[in-house]
Write a protein that binds this DNA or RNA. Structure first.
Length: 479
RNA sequence: GGUCCCGUAGCCGAGUGGUUAGGCAACGGAUUGCAAAUCCGUUUACGGCGGUUCGAUUCCGCCCGGGACCUCCA
């Protein structure tokens, strides 16, 4: 069986066949660092993370690059001479654009850690690749595919017949009413900027190409430059949010393929935007959450991660606070089963004679099949929970418990949304004082002094432990 | 206006031309002094109207509702 992924370019499920056998190259459009990362951003980044983890699980050596866009995003106003988002944030806060970029880049990395993202191998900043962008621009100018007007360099759409092949946009003339400002400099309204000149701009560089003026790069060129630098002229997978498909990725394809003469990306993947409380997230509707805001509400990174990956990336996940509660309960169910298996495997709880190996193998096969079919996490989770049920029902041998534990470890390795394997807590691991309280409670129960028993339970709970009564007697677990 | 996606039981969400998704919640039962955990069971659904079919939630058409993109956006 092979991994099949929905390719936006071909509009069907394509089998992942790496350019170099056994190795997969991935590029992910990363954050634009002018504000705090929100949960919508991380739905996309977590999708990329799960993709990477699963591809690795399937035996491929993955090289992952995610850029940090720290320059160049133009606001609508910019078309009429306004400023870009970095600069706008700078004006509002009094910090320089550079300070803004570093601040939110740090915040982004922190969010990645909190959400247990496996760090990409490279996370380059656009501002560190001005020279590389310049050499592409230079080449496009030499080839006559790009042209310069008043220092601004534009990519000529007319010179690249494939323009529109990703997004399916075959625009002869731009629609009246669409948000397109007329730019007299462009030969074609669809031409996009590779290099911009604006003396008011804080971030400026001497032209990194021949015959240019001091300015700053357009938005799209950075990804071409960094992707090529780290991964070569052709890569296996490129991901981003659905909004990136047009114009960003369309432009990346145009400039990169015009430059190299080769197909840029094999499989383009786009994550659907999430909804919050059933509608698009927006500050004015009051349903806008940064990652930090959710964490500040008392939810763990693990819980948020679960809530954001539980639905397949191409479905519009509806994010709600109830959903976080479900995530918390679901994680607890999985961890409860793993903890019991761990106790049995460690000989801290009596083993039985049941063999869970078949159930574990079944669950793994279902999990793999679900993930292979375009990362169907919802279905994969069903396989995980099937093993939870089988485990809880069984009285496994120690070896069988270990086997099931290994399957859970694999599920965790791919999804990362359950947490580390619970420790096998047993009598010896519990503080003696608490063990004494537990004994007293047992005595109180025997004497039918339930008020005292409940008091003792409250004391134990106050110490951060909870009592679990079982057929083998009571046990203490960390709450 | 153009292009496209979706509408599944209380909620979140898989999937399928005729057979139990799963999670959460609720209720009943087992266990239990109570609670928690666990197990068993119950609530059996596919927006509406037509059409194709022996049979459609699953294919087609229309309608209603929600959403996305059309150079800020993950």
């Amino acid at each position: 069986m092979a991994i099949r992924l929905y390719n936006s370019l071909t509009r069907r499920l394509d089998e992942l066949r790496p350019l170099t056998p056994g190795k997969v190259t991935m590029y992910h459009c990363g954050p634009t660092v002018y504000s705090s990362p929100h949960i919508g951003n991380f739905r996309s980044f977590l999708f990329a993370d799960v993709l990477r983890r699963f591809v690795e699980d399937q035996g491929f050596a993955v090289t992952q690059v995610m850029n940090v866009t720290d320059v160049g995003h133009l606001t609508l106003d910019d078309i009429e001479g306004g400023e870009d988002k970095m600069e706008a944030a700078s004006r509002k806060t009094g910090k320089t654009a550079w300070e803004i970029a570093r601040q939110f880049e740090d915040e982004f990395h922190n969010c990645q850690r909190q959400l247990l993202v496996r760090m990409p191998h490279h996370m380059p900043r656009a501002t560190d690749f001005i020279a590389q962008m310049g050499s592409i621009i230079d080449d496009l100018l030499q080839k006559g595919i790009a042209y310069q007007v008043n220092g601004n360099v534009y990519f000529a759409i007319a010179a690249f017949p494939g323009y529109g092949k990703l997004s399916g946009k075959v625009i002869d003339e731009l629609e009246e009413g669409a948000r397109v400002a007329v730019n007299e400099e462009k030969r074609d309204a669809r031409d996009f900027a590779l290099w911009k000149v604006d003396h008011k701009h804080q971030m400026q560089w001497d032209a990194p190409f021949r015959g240019g003026a001091r300015g700053f790069p357009g938005w799209h060129i950075e990804c071409s430059a960094m992707s090529m630098h780290y991964l070569g002229r052709q890569i296996d997978i490129h991901t981003g949010g659905e909004d990136n498909m047009f114009p960003h990725h369309e432009c990346e394809i145009a400039q990169t393929e015009a430059h190299t003469g080769q197909q840029f990306v094999q499989i383009w993947m786009h994550a659907r935007h999430l909804l919050v409380n059933g509608t698009k997230m927006s500050k004015s509707l009051g349903n806008f959450y940064t990652v930090q805001q959710v964490l500040d509400l008392g939810w763990s990174g693990l819980e948020l991660r679960y809530a954001l990956i539980r639905v397949q990336y191409r479905q519009s996940l509806n994010f709600t606070m109830d959903g976080l509660g479900e995530a918390r309960a679901s994680i607890a169910r999985v961890q409860g089963a793993r903890a019991r298996l761990a106790r049995i495997a460690a000989g801290k709880e009596p083993a039985g004679a049941d063999d869970l190996a078949a159930a574990a193998a079944r669950a793994e096969a279902a999990f793999t099949a679900a993930m292979q079919e375009d990362l169907n996490v919802s279905e994969a989770l069903a396989a995980v929970f099937a093993l939870v049920g089988d485990s809880n029902r069984a009285q496994p041998t120690a070896a069988a418990a270990s086997a099931a534990l290994r399957s859970f470890a694999r599920f965790e390795d791919v999804l990362g949304c359950f947490g580390a394997e619970p420790k096998a807590e047993a009598a010896g691991d519990v503080p003696a004082a608490l063990q004494e309280l537990l004994s007293q409670r047992q005595a109180a129960k025997k004497a039918k002094d339930f008020a005292a028993a409940d008091r003792l339970r409250d004391q134990i709970a106050a110490a951060g432990w909870k009592i679990v009564d079982t057929a083998q007697g009571p046990r203490l677990e960390r709450a």
